[in-house]
Deep mutational scan, measured.
Amino acid sequence: MDVFMKGLSKAKEGVVAAAEKTKQGVAEAAGKTKEGVLYVGSKTKEGVVHGVATVAEKTKEQVTNVGGAVVTGVTAVAQKTVEGAGSIAAATGFVKKDQLGKNEEGAPQEGILEDMPVDPDNEAYEMPSEEGYQDYEPEA
């Protein structure tokens, strides 16, 4: 019985440690998101679009440190934060509304985080759909 109880105690310690790591990862992701939003706020009209992409990228980098179902929630929060940063930029006159959601080359930025393969159960990952990809044929 002692062996059984000791095993359960060790398992509990492992769960607590994993929860603490997840909590730490979420806190880091939130900190990076805040950094990115402050970065966007300090940019001029020309830099705002690039700044919004930076927020998304920093958040995406930190999301990889967070495991399990938390990833889905962090990704949703990050996307809403990026959308909010863009709205703030438009409201303050840093950028025109028609410039939001495009990178410096004018290509749409939507789907940055949505296409990231995420499995809350950590069982399997699927690649994003290939609808947006084109076949590449090298020139002879």
Results as ranks from 00 to 15, higher is better:
78 A>Y: 14
129 S>E: 10
134 Q>K: 13
136 Y>E: 03
80 K>P: 02
124 A>Y: 14
27 A>I: 15
34 K>A: 09
66 V>L: 11
110 E>D: 10
70 V>N: 01
133 Y>L: 15
5 M>C: 01
126 E>G: 12
67 G>P: 02
9 S>G: 13
16 V>D: 01
77 V>F: 08
30 A>R: 02
135 D>K: 05
4 F>W: 03
10 K>N: 04
64 T>E: 08
133 Y>A: 06
32 K>L: 13
129 S>I: 07
9 S>H: 09
108 P>F: 08
36 G>M: 14
35 E>N: 14
41 G>P: 00
129 S>H: 05
107 A>V: 07
108 P>N: 10
10 K>M: 14
78 A>V: 12
93 G>F: 02
7 G>Y: 06
35 E>P: 01
17 A>Q: 11
14 G>V: 14
130 E>R: 04
16 V>I: 14
50 H>K: 10
46 E>P: 04
23 K>G: 01
84 G>S: 11
26 V>G: 00
85 A>Q: 02
137 E>P: 05
73 G>C: 14
82 V>N: 03
24 Q>H: 15
137 E>D: 11
45 K>G: 03
63 V>W: 15
92 T>V: 13
70 V>G: 01
21 K>M: 14
33 T>N: 00
118 V>M: 09
93 G>Y: 07
95 V>I: 14
138 P>W: 11
108 P>H: 07
66 V>F: 15
42 S>W: 14
115 D>I: 04
12 K>M: 15
16 V>P: 00
2 D>A: 01
38 L>R: 09
13 E>W: 07
49 V>G: 03
12 K>T: 12
119 D>L: 08
2 D>M: 04
38 L>N: 04
65 N>H: 05
49 V>R: 10
12 K>C: 13
10 K>Q: 05
69 A>H: 08
40 V>Q: 00
35 E>W: 11
79 Q>C: 12
89 A>V: 14
34 K>C: 06
51 G>W: 15
49 V>D: 01
25 G>C: 09
60 K>N: 02
119 D>T: 09
3 V>H: 04
87 S>C: 08
119 D>H: 10
116 M>H: 15
105 E>K: 02
91 A>Q: 09
137 E>N: 05
37 V>N: 00
59 T>R: 01
1 M>H: 00
74 V>S: 02
11 A>Y: 03
110 E>P: 11
28 E>F: 09
49 V>C: 14
20 E>G: 02
68 G>H: 11
43 K>C: 12
26 V>D: 00
84 G>Q: 11
93 G>A: 14
71 V>R: 09
108 P>S: 07
103 N>H: 08
59 T>D: 00
87 S>Y: 14
49 V>T: 09
103 N>C: 08
107 A>N: 09
20 E>C: 08
5 M>F: 03
86 G>H: 08
69 A>C: 05
83 E>G: 04
131 E>I: 12
97 K>S: 14
54 T>I: 14
94 F>Q: 05
109 Q>I: 13
86 G>S: 11
13 E>K: 04
134 Q>N: 10
23 K>R: 11
84 G>H: 05
21 K>N: 03
83 E>M: 10
133 Y>F: 15
27 A>D: 01
126 E>N: 11
28 E>V: 10
61 E>N: 09
129 S>R: 04
140 A>M: 08
8 L>K: 00
107 A>G: 13
5 M>N: 02
114 E>T: 08
78 A>T: 08
10 K>E: 01
89 A>K: 02
5 M>W: 04
136 Y>F: 15
30 A>I: 15
12 K>G: 03
137 E>R: 08
127 M>W: 05
118 V>P: 09
33 T>P: 00
28 E>N: 02
13 E>L: 01
90 A>V: 10
96 K>M: 14
136 Y>P: 07
28 E>G: 02
118 V>A: 11
115 D>A: 12
102 K>L: 14
91 A>V: 09
120 P>R: 12
3 V>E: 00
137 E>A: 06
115 D>E: 13
54 T>S: 04
92 T>H: 04
78 A>Q: 03
32 K>E: 00
50 H>F: 15
137 E>L: 08
114 E>V: 09
136 Y>Q: 08
132 G>L: 06
34 K>Y: 04
108 P>M: 13
127 M>G: 04
57 E>S: 04
49 V>L: 08
58 K>H: 11
79 Q>V: 09
51 G>S: 03
59 T>Q: 01
17 A>C: 06
74 V>K: 01
135 D>A: 04
128 P>R: 10
88 I>H: 02
79 Q>K: 13
125 Y>M: 03
65 N>R: 12
129 S>T: 08
51 G>M: 14
37 V>D: 00
87 S>D: 07
119 D>E: 11
24 Q>M: 15
89 A>D: 03
3 V>A: 03
34 K>N: 01
8 L>G: 00
139 E>Q: 04
40 V>K: 01
8 L>Q: 00
21 K>L: 11
62 Q>G: 04
85 A>L: 15
46 E>R: 05
56 A>D: 00
87 S>T: 06
21 K>D: 00
43 K>S: 02
41 G>L: 02
64 T>Q: 08
139 E>S: 11
97 K>T: 11
100 L>A: 14
125 Y>P: 11
120 P>G: 10
114 E>I: 11
16 V>G: 03
93 G>M: 03
79 Q>R: 09
81 T>D: 01
17 A>L: 06
76 A>T: 13
82 V>K: 07
60 K>G: 03
79 Q>Y: 11
119 D>S: 04
85 A>F: 12
6 K>L: 05
35 E>M: 13
58 K>F: 12
65 N>Q: 08
132 G>C: 12
7 G>P: 01
83 E>D: 08
48 V>S: 01
28 E>Q: 10
99 Q>E: 07
134 Q>S: 10
132 G>Y: 10
37 V>T: 01
115 D>Y: 13
91 A>C: 11
67 G>W: 09
106 G>Q: 06
110 E>H: 03
20 E>L: 14
44 T>K: 01
15 V>E: 00
106 G>E: 08
54 T>G: 07
71 V>P: 02
16 V>A: 06
35 E>A: 06
46 E>L: 04
59 T>F: 15
66 V>M: 12
114 E>R: 11
12 K>Q: 05
28 E>L: 08
45 K>A: 09
50 H>Q: 13
130 E>S: 03
19 A>E: 00
116 M>I: 11
59 T>Y: 15
77 V>N: 01
118 V>S: 08
127 M>T: 04
41 G>H: 12
123 E>K: 11
130 E>N: 13
4 F>G: 00
30 A>W: 05
117 P>H: 06
60 K>R: 10
12 K>E: 00
73 G>F: 06
2 D>Q: 13
27 A>T: 03
10 K>D: 01
9 S>R: 14
108 P>Q: 11
133 Y>I: 02
99 Q>L: 13
11 A>K: 00
120 P>S: 09
117 P>L: 04
31 G>R: 08
53 A>I: 14
5 M>Q: 00
129 S>W: 05
134 Q>Y: 07
3 V>T: 00
83 E>W: 15
91 A>M: 13
134 Q>L: 12
136 Y>V: 08
3 V>F: 04
83 E>H: 11
87 S>L: 14
126 E>H: 12
20 E>I: 13
125 Y>A: 04
92 T>K: 02
85 A>T: 06
1 M>L: 00
78 A>I: 12
65 N>E: 08
22 T>R: 01
47 G>D: 08
133 Y>E: 08
52 V>K: 01
80 K>T: 04
106 G>W: 09
46 E>S: 07
24 Q>G: 03
122 N>T: 06
129 S>Y: 05
107 A>C: 06
27 A>V: 07
118 V>Q: 02
1 M>I: 00
16 V>E: 07
94 F>M: 02
12 K>I: 03
70 V>M: 04
46 E>G: 11
43 K>A: 08
72 T>C: 12
26 V>R: 00
46 E>Q: 06
67 G>I: 10
96 K>R: 08
135 D>I: 10
29 A>W: 09
119 D>W: 03
22 T>S: 07
4 F>A: 00
52 V>Q: 01
67 G>H: 07
57 E>H: 06
56 A>Q: 05
16 V>Q: 05
29 A>D: 00
